[in-house]
């Protein structure tokens, strides 16, 4: 697997969430994603970016363009040093929120991605990785 591009963006404010959407739009378009596939990954990114700001206390996004022998894709790695997620299964359940949301963000982002991973330790932070491949 070759990582063709690798950039880091701040994810600290609701304005940053908008910037994340725009950057994911331009990367997925550059890779040649269909409009529907672009929209899916942007929406997933928007959910995770907002969680990073609200629950993670801010963090960063690493945005990568991937190329292996047969396909190209976009990988998003959101990282924060916030409180972490104590029960990942519960957090992924649709309808579960510890705040005032709908509890759809994590589960929805997982459905909208081809690859999805959460790594989190209480007190140390959360890293969420999403990837989607060009079809």
């Amino acid at each position: 697997m070759i990582v063709e591009a690798d950039d880091v963006l701040p994810v600290r404010s609701t304005e940053d969430v908008v910037r994340v959407r725009q950057e994911v739009r331009s990367r997925t378009a550059a890779v040649g994603f269909s409009l529907v596939d672009q929209t899916k990954l942007i929406t997933a990114a928007s959910e995770i970016a907002r969680n990073t700001v609200i629950y993670g206390g801010g963090g960063t996004l690493r945005l990568q363009i991937l190329q292996n022998t047969t396909r190209r894709g976009v990988r998003l790695i959101f990282e924060d040093k916030g409180p972490g997620i104590p029960d990942i299964e519960r957090a992924l359940t649709d309808g579960y929120t510890s705040g005032s949301g709908l509890g759809l963000g994590l589960g929805g982002a997982r459905r909208l991605s081809n690859e999805f991973d959460i790594a989190s330790k209480p007190g140390e932070g959360t890293t969420i990785t999403l990837a989607r491949w060009k079809r």
């Binding site: 529907v36 709908l102 759809l104 589960g107 459905r111």
Partner: peptide, 14 residues
Amino acid sequence: MRPAVAITLVELGL
């Protein structure tokens, strides 16, 4: 609402 947005909303579960 754009078709791509409508399709994505369903998968998001909203």
